[in-house]
Design a protein around this nucleic acid. Structure first.
Length: 500
RNA sequence: CGGGGCGUAGCGCAGUCUGGUUAGCGCACUUGAUUUGGGAUCAAGGGGUCGUGAGUUCGAAUCCCACCGCCCCGACCA
């Protein structure tokens, strides 16, 4: 077998492969603090691309950004009963505000707080408290605010990007005068996430509603987008919640309507996290490392100059700089092409492989020979590292954005095909059990079947380590069928899978 | 919190069972030479209070005790 840049391969040890891809691409590493990660420049640059695009989409749909504090009074969290229950077990708590000499050469906490503060696991409660102050009249609604922030959930088992104790995200929090308006908002943001995942991350997703027993603590309805990784496991890539009046009652967000009577507002919240980067890695990357869809790639094109001596270096660098300038003036989906010249003083082969592992969509090699022929040597990350071709310089300049779009589409199509070919319809509990217990190499994937929205089905699926992912919004047909777990007649199919 | 394992150079490890000069190896790093369009080779070099503390001993990375930290498996989870 040919040597690959990443060992082990996906087929040998998928979880270990995942960690190695992150190391090889220099995206992140574990920090001295358990469960927390240091996001390194290459990983953070991907997050910045995600932020940039989503932020434009949020603003285009009428949202504005604001910032709320990291610390939440403990009493706030107690206000919404199911919310407490959902998050209490994973909250980091601040109890002191000072350090003093412990007499043994170290420090110890001092100055106990009257009321402990919780490091936000999510911000519904504190934002709700502020909205209560801001909303008096129906004229104050809707409030459409998003914040980019970090949150902390004290997780037992963590994995870089996929699940860390502290993570970065955006959380949108909106308040509306009517239930329908809030529901429309919830579904609108689900669409924003789904479009973003498809178009930017090249991530095919299933839009659906969570069954009641998988709902966000305190929500009336939770919607999500679900994606399939290359090991056939599911990842929830984003969520949008219709919170009804639960949080507005807890926080007293009240307003006077047009008729002069007092009502509680209807609220929503929605978010995506740095987990998207984990999903991105697990969807597209291969045994040679990260593969980035061009639209989230921190660099679209990397140019590797090749020369032997000072004289050649001059000529080659001039050519590279000119090409970079030209490409920077080319627009790719309303942004200038991102081009990096790698002029580091290390060997060419090593350079090439580093960029392969970092997943840059297009690599160009330019040496004296190419300059003579007025051409460049091009390799695409969606093809084998060996697959390089010489292409006329002018030709490349004209086609660069088309090639990037081809790569973007190719990655999406591959992922879509993978998801479709690993999604199966079953019609009996026996089939269901067989699918998830037989040979694990094949048994992965999504299973759809008629299932009732009833927590008793957890008794059937938990022992299999399977979870109910969602009830897809788009159903194959309008038919009804018998729930394979309860025997009830239902009109919706549900998606099941092993999940991250 | 239950069960298992591990702390030795930046990273990965050997050495510990059976105590003994100056604690090793691979990768990485620095320098030099020869190379150079697919992950170079050779040579030289720098880098360690062996997790912490106390003990046994002429002598401890190695044995005893305590502590600290981390990893894996289980319940929780975007």
């Amino acid at each position: 077998m040919e040597k690959t840049a990443i060992t082990p391969r996906r087929s040998e040890n998928y979880p270990e492969w995942y960690q190695q891809v992150i190391i090889a691409a220099d995206m992140a590493e574990n920090s001295p603090v358990r469960g927390c990660m240091v996001i390194k420049p290459w990983g953070y640059a991907i997050w910045e691309q995600i932020q940039g695009d989503l932020d434009r989409r949020f603003k285009a749909t009428g949202h504005v950004n604001a910032y709320f504090p990291l610390l939440i009074p403990l009493s706030y969290l107690e206000k919404e009963a199911s919310h407490v229950e959902g998050f209490a077990k994973e909250c980091a708590v601040v109890t002191h505000h000072r350090l003093i000499d412990d007499g043994k050469g170290g420090l110890k906490p001092d100055g106990q707080l009257e009321e402990p503060l919780v490091i936000r696991p999510t911000s519904e409660t504190i934002i709700g408290a502020m909205y209560a102050k801001w909303v008096k009249s129906y004229r104050d609604l809707p409030i459409l605010i998003n914040q980019w922030a970090n949150v902390m959930r004290w997780e037992m088992r963590t994995r870089l990007f996929l699940r860390t104790s502290e993570f970065l995200w955006q959380e949108g929090h909106t308040a509306h005068a009517t239930a329908n308006e809030a529901i429309d908002e919830t579904l609108l943001m689900l669409d924003v996430y789904s479009d973003f995942a498809n178009e930017i991350l090249a991530l095919p997703v299933i839009k659906g509603e969570k069954p009641s027993f998988e709902r966000f603590p305190g929500a009336v309805n939770t919607y999500c987008i679900e994606a399939m990784m290359q090991d056939c496991k599911a990842v929830q890539a984003g969520t949008s919640h219709f919170l009804g009046q639960n949080f507005s009652k807890a926080a007293e967000i009240q307003f006077t309507n047009q008729e002069g009577s007092i009502e509680y507002a209807w609220t929503t919240s929605w978010g995506v996290t740095t987990r998207l980067i984990g999903a991105l890695i697990m969807t597209h990357s291969d045994d040679d490392g990260l593969v980035l869809p061009p639209r989230v790639a921190p660099q679209h094109i990397v140019i590797i100059p090749i020369y032997k001596n000072e004289e050649e270096k001059q000529k080659v660098m001039d050519c590279c700089n000119t090409l970079k300038k030209t490409l920077n003036n080319t627009y790719y989906h309303h942004q200038e092409l991102r081009v990096q010249i790698d002029s580091r003083d290390i060997r060419g082969g090593e350079k090439t492989w580093q960029w392969v592992k970092k997943g840059v969509p297009i690599r160009l090699e330019i040496g004296p020979r190419d300059i003579e022929n007025n051409s460049v040597f091009m390799a695409r990350r969606d093809k084998s590292p060996k697959d390089k071709q010489s292409i006329g310089l002018q030709n490349f300049i004209e086609q660069a954005t088309t090639i990037l779009d081809e790569i973007q589409l190719e990655l999406f199509n591959r992922a879509k095909l993978f998801m479709n070919s690993h999604t199966f319809e079953v019609s009996s509990l026996e089939e269901f059990n067989k699918f998830f217990t037989e040979d694990n190499n094949i048994s992965g994937g999504f299973v759809t079947c008629y299932a009732a929205d009833d927590s008793v089905i957890e008794d059937f699926i938990k022992p299999l380590k399977v979870t109910a992912r969602c009830i897809p919004l788009e159903q194959a047909d309008n038919a009804s069928g018998v729930c394979i777990f309860t025997g009830k007649t239902v009109n919706k199919r549900m998606v099941f899978a092993k999940a991250y």
